[in-house]
Structure formats: structure tokens, C-alpha cells
Write a protein that binds this DNA or RNA. Sequence first.
DNA 1: CAGGATCCTAGTCGATACTG
DNA 2: CAGTATCGACTAGGATCCTG
Lengths: 134, 134
Amino acid sequence: MATLSAAQLREHQRDEYNAFLAQCPGHQLLATLSDKWVTLVLAALADGPLRYSDLSRTIPGASQKMLTQTLRKLERDGLLTRTVTPSVPVRVDYEITALGRTLLPIQQAIKNWAETHIEQVHRARAAYDRGDAG
Amino acid sequence: MATLSAAQLREHQRDEYNAFLAQCPGHQLLATLSDKWVTLVLAALADGPLRYSDLSRTIPGASQKMLTQTLRKLERDGLLTRTVTPSVPVRVDYEITALGRTLLPIQQAIKNWAETHIEQVHRARAAYDRGDAG
DNA sequence: CAGGATCCTAGTCGATACTG
DNA sequence: CAGTATCGACTAGGATCCTG
């Protein structure tokens, strides 16, 4: 017990590194951005506020659970606001915040890169899959 | 069998939508970029080629499996090259490609946003968790 | 040194049913 | 209408052992 085994040591380093990564702002943002539904919700709200059911119709791929979960996360991060109108039935509007809007150019940049270079990537994949070494 | 149940219909729409998303270049790129290790590998190679063991030391958080898997994926996408030198023992160098380099500005943009706005996000989270409605 | 193959766990996602 | 709660399927990721 004087020293740690090599495996334990590596595990320790890994944990430390991962803890460090978890704190890295870049990766926090990436974790948010990489969420499939986040981008779609943000994009959907770019044109103006929407109600829950509108969002659910705009993004048919998302289950109720995922949609709600995504909305909560974004609200928590201050990227959108949730406004409840206590009528009968209830009405809830979601609106993107100024902070959320600053994210849109980044999404756009990603989209642009993708549209510009996706062909190259696809060709590279095809070559790789063909077993093309030279 | 004349009509589909509501559940089946929704499921169908979901599938279609997800198939559409899978084809969307932006989401393909996002799927790549969002991979924790991809960013790190790309960043590590930005300064010059590295060997497998170098990478593994630079990124202690990645397991062998994840590292290899990530490298293969990036090679397949044409974002880096893998060069084997058949000496004893074998030597393998990984180098970022021109295409891969075009991705770096985007990573940088993300990093910049994160560093600029992460504070706001953290404050928003704290307020949310405090149950701060107004 | 660089990785392939295998097993296994933990978290994610979706379907379903119920509530104010 | 706008959710919440729960359960099961799936799979990404990590540990481990083994090879050229």
C-alpha cells in the first residue's frame, strides 16, 4: 500500500484530466452545442417566440421528454426564457435571450463549414472504405 | 391495417425526421466535433505530427480504445493522416491535414465564445438553481 | 510500440401512462 | 395544453487481455 499500482496511477491521472476537462469552458459549451436538439430548438426560436406545442411540431424528431429536457437545460443556462400564462388551458412561451442569440453565429459558422467541406469528407470516407492507401 | 395508429404515425414521422437529420451536413459535423476526444486530438496535432504514444500522453484522459477509435474516425474523414514506419518496433505518426486545419478556427471560435460567455451561463445557472424567478 | 478483440457497466434516449 | 414520472432498450465508453 506504499505505492499505487500502475493501473491505479493511470486511473488517477485519467480522473484528474477528466475533472479538468469538465471545467474547461470550451468543453462545457461543446457539450451543450453537440446536443442534437439544442441546435434545433435554438434555430427554431431564432425567428421569434414559440409555444411548447409549436416547438414540438417544428421538431417532430424530439420526444416530449427530450424536448422538455432540452428546454429546461437551455432555460437554466440563460439561453432562453420560459413564460407561463396562467390561462385555461395554460400557455407557455419560449423565447431566445440575447445570450442565446450570440450562439447563432457559431451555429452558422458550423453549418457553413459543413456545407463547404462535407463533400471532401465524404470523398475521404469513400476512399478510406475502398481501402485506398495511395 | 387500413390506417396507422396515432402512435405509429408519430413514430414514422420521427424516423423520417431523424433520417433527415442524419443527412444534414451540419449535424454530421456536430457529431464529429462534439466528440470529446476529437477536439483534443485535433488541438494536439495543431503544433505538428505526433506518435501514438505521444498522443496518449498528451491526452491522458483517453483510453487506448477511445484514442484509436478517434484517430481512425478522423483518418477516415480525411482530417488527419496516419503514417506507419515499418521499423522495429513499429512507429506510427499522425499528422493533421489541410482539411483538418480548416476546422481549427471553428474550434477557436467555440473556445472564444465559451471563455467570453461562460460566466453569464454560470450566473444564469446559479440563479435558476436558487429558484430565482424574477 | 501500436493496436485488435472482448466483456461489462453506466448513462442516454424513447415509449408509455398519468397530472394540473 | 404542457408537462412529470417511470421503465426498458440501446450503446457509447472504459477496463482488461492479447498480438505483430
